[in-house]
C-alpha cells in the first residue's frame, strides 16, 4: 500500500518509453506476419500445455476435490506441505530418491568416462565402431523391455543365478528382486547397462578436440598409457565433466521413475518407492491430488536450488557453466 506512488512513476516513464517503441514493434510484427503465424500457434500450445499446469500448482494450497469446479476449492495454505513433512513414508521415499540418484550419478559418471577413455584407446577403427554401435543399443529400447530383460536375468532360473551357482559363488539361486537390500544395486547396474554406451558420446566428442600433438610429445617424453590418460585425456575432459555434473545435480531428485516402478514389487517398496512413485500413488491411486502436487512442487523447488548452487560453485571455481 505504501508503495503506491512508486509504480505510478515507473508506469509514467514506461508509457513515455513505450510510446516511442510500440508503433515500431507493431510495424515489425506486421512486417513479419509470416514468421508470427509460424510461431504464435506453438506459443499458444505452450501456454495451454506447459503454463496452465504450472498454474495448477495452486492445487497444493487447496483441499482439492475433483467434483467441485476449479474456482470453488477450499484454500488451506501450507497445510498439505506440513502434512507431507510429518509423513514417515515421505522421508523414506526421499531417502530412496536421493540414494538412488546419487548411485546413478556416481556410477554413471565413472563408468561412462572410463568406457569413453578405453574406447579412445582402441586402435582398430572398425572394431571400435562396432563396439560403439552395439553399446548404444540398450539406450534406445524402452524401460519396459529393459525391465523384462533384467527381471528374467535375475529370476531364480535366470542367467545370473545359473552362472553364480556354476562358479560356486552361491549355493542356492537367490531371488534378487525379492529382497529390498539388493534393489539399489540392481537399479544402479541396470541404469549403467542401459546408458553407459550412450553417455560416452559426449566424452568421446570432447576427446577428439584434444590436440594430438600433446599425445605425440608425451610419447616421445616416455609417458606410458596411464600417464597419457591421466595427464592429457582426463584434464581435457574436465570442463565437459563439470557441465554435465551441474546439469545432473539439478536432477538429484529425479532418480528415474520407470525402472523403479517396473522392477519394484511388494517386497521391495521400502527401498524402491521414490518421489515420483509417491506422487503417482497419492495422486492417482488415492486421488489425493493436493498432497501429490505438494510433493511435486517440493521436488521442482529443491532441484532448482541444486541447479543454481552447482552453477554458482562452478562459476566461483572459474569453470564453464550453464548460465
Amino acid at each position: 500500500m505504501e508503495n503506491q506512488t512508486q509504480p505510478a512513476i515507473s508506469t509514467a516513464q514506461g508509457r513515455a518509453l513505450r510510446r516511442s517503441r510500440l508503433p515500431f514493434f507493431f510495424k515489425k510484427l506486421l512486417q513479419q506476419k509470416v514468421l508470427v503465424a509460424m510461431s504464435v500457434p506453438f506459443l499458444l500450445w505452450l501456454v495451454l500445455f506447459k503454463y496452465v499446469p504450472l498454474w495448477g500448482w495452486t492445487i497444493a494450497f487447496q483441499k482439492f476435490r475433483p467434483a467441485k469446479g476449479l474456482f470453488d476449492q477450499e484454500w488451506v495454505g501450507w497445510k498439505n506441505f506440513a502434512f507431507l513433512f510429518q509423513d514417515d513414508t515421505f522421508y523414506q521415499v526421499l531417502r530412496n530418491t536421493i540414494v538412488m540418484s546419487t548411485i546413478n550419478l556416481v556410477f554413471g559418471f565413472v563408468t561412462a568416462i572410463t568406457l569413453a577413455i578405453l574406447l579412445n584407446e582402441l586402435r582398430h577403427i572398425l572394431f571400435k565402431r562396432v563396439v560403439q554401435t552395439i553399446s548404444y543399443l540398450p539406450h534406445f529400447i524402452s524401460w519396459v523391455v529393459a525391465a523384462s530383460i533384467v527381471s528374467s536375468a535375475l529370476s531364480p532360473e535366470g542367467i545370473i543365478n545359473i552362472l553364480l551357482v556354476k562358479l560356486h559363488i552361491i549355493e542356492q539361486p537367490i531371488l534378487w528382486l525379492g529382497k529390498g537390500e539388493y534393489f539399489w544395486g540392481i537399479i544402479g547396474s541396470a541404469e549403467v547397462w542401459k546408458n553407459v554406451g550412450w553417455n560416452t558420446i559426449i566424452y568421446l566428442a570432447a576427446i577428439t578436440t584434444i590436440d594430438p600433438a600433446q599425445y605425440e610429445a608425451a610419447e616421445i617424453d616416455g609417458a606410458n598409457r596411464f600417464q597419457r590418460i591421466g595427464y592429457i585425456t582426463l584434464p581435457g575432459l574436465k570442463s565437459v565433466i563439470v557441465i554435465l555434473l551441474i546439469m545432473n545435480l539439478g536432477h538429484i531428485l529425479e532418480s528415474g521413475f520407470e525402472p523403479q516402478y517396473l522392477l519394484g514389487n511388494g517386497m521391495t517398496v521400502e527401498y524402491s518407492d521414490n518421489l515420483d512413485i509417491f506422487v503417482l500413488k497419492y495422486g492417482m491411486d488415492m486421488s489425493n491430488y493436493s498432497l501429490a502436487t505438494a510433493a511435486g512442487i517440493f521436488k521442482t523447488a529443491v532441484s532448482f536450488i541444486f541447479l543454481l548452487s552447482a552453477n554458482g560453485i562452478a562459476k566461483r571455481l572459474g569453470e564453464s557453466r550453464l548460465f
Binding site: 506447459k50 503454463y51 499446469p53 495448477g56 492445487i59 515420483d276 491430488y289 502436487t293 511435486g296
Partner: peptide, 17 residues
C-alpha cells in the same frame, strides 16, 4: 520454451488438464 525445461506442472496438474 526453455523455461519449461526447468519448471513443469508435474503429474497431477498435467493429468487434470
Amino acid at each position: 520454451f526453455i523455461f519449461t525445461m526447468y519448471f513443469s506442472g508435474g503429474l497431477i496438474p498435467g493429468y487434470l488438464l
